[in-house]
């Protein structure tokens, strides 16, 4: 009986965890998955978003409402960020993605240091009425601090997926990755599409930050443990696949929860890569990747 309890709870918390991971990886599935820009600063942007949410929450705002409002300034920030990147790399021609990694690592460090200077290294958290309480039915016990962000993720993913498949500018966003020359011949400015995509990805970072800080307190370096995981999810999903991101993240979430329950929590961070390597050996383009 105890085994059944354990495995059921591991599965439920794994799905919840995976759903949250999907939200963390979503912005990256645009910048890296669609635009092929290795934005390793995404988790740091997410933590910056979490701090912005903490700041707003301390003034009485609900963290999710705060995050939704903050998507606007974060979108603008993403556009500035892309302009900076494009000026430094893309306008000098193609093939500079690898060098641009240094830029993104640098940005990542600058964000972390700025957070330390502004807020110190203490853990920060949000105050919401549901933290500390859990949903109980039968043998399943799921804390609301996991359940709420886990429910937010599919809504955001659905909205993004509808945008990418049902709107003309969403189609243009998908097209820019395939062929920006063919896109410009069609009358679309590829640079403005990429700028917009980066804005969306950065706006998603603040939603991810809110989800993260609801699940538990963060410090300025909390993004670091997420870097490997979010890249693994995006590659496992199949570059640029939005539904794939959710499936891949839930797979990894369940696997991590099972490993934590039955082996040891210290193995959990490695699980994402074990699954990634195993899948890529069979399907090199990921779960939902084209060809």
């Amino acid at each position: 009986m105890e085994f059944l309890d354990l495995i059921t709870n591991a599965l439920v918390s794994g799905v919840a965890l995976g759903s949250i991971y999907a939200l963390l990886a979503l912005g990256l599935s645009i910048t890296f998955g669609v635009l092929h820009i290795p934005n390793v600063a995404h988790p740091a942007l997410m933590i910056a978003g979490a701090y912005a949410v903490v700041f707003a929450n301390a003034r009485g705002l609900d963290p999710i409402v705060a995050a939704l409002l903050l998507t606007v300034p974060f979108y603008a920030l993403g556009i500035v960020f892309y302009e900076f990147y494009a000026r430094a790399f893309e306008k000098r021609g193609r093939g500079n993605t690898l060098q641009s990694l240094t830029l993104f690592f640098g940005v990542s460090l600058v964000i972390e240091i700025a957070l330390v200077v502004a807020f110190g290294t203490d853990l920060r958290s949000v105050e919401v009425p549901y933290v500390g309480r859990s949903l109980e039915f039968g043998i399943v016990l799921l804390p609301y601090r996991f359940l709420v962000p886990a429910l937010l993720a599919p809504v955001v993913i659905l909205a993004l997926w509808l945008y990418m498949t049902r709107t003309y500018s969403g189609l243009a966003l998908r097209a820019v990755a395939h062929d920006d020359r063919a896109l410009s011949i069609s009358g679309v400015n590829p640079v403005s599409i990429k700028r917009h995509a980066f804005g969306i990805a950065t706006a998603l970072a603040v939603l991810a930050g809110a989800a993260l800080v609801i699940t538990g307190p963060v410090d300025p370096f909390a993004g670091r443990v997420q870097i490997g995981r979010v890249f693994a999810i995006v590659v496992l999903a199949g570059l640029g696949s939005i539904p794939g991101t959710l499936v891949a993240a839930i797979l990894i979430g369940i696997a991590e929860a099972l490993v934590t329950a039955f082996l040891s929590p210290s193995w959990a961070p490695g699980v994402a890569f074990a699954i990634l390597l195993g899948t890529l050996a069979i399907r090199p383009s990921g779960l939902f990747g084209a060809r």
Partner: peptide, 11 residues
């Protein structure tokens, strides 16, 4: 069809 709809917001 979607191939043709890509630039529609910008034309």
């Amino acid at each position: 069809l979607e191939n043709l709809l890509v630039p529609m917001d910008y034309l």
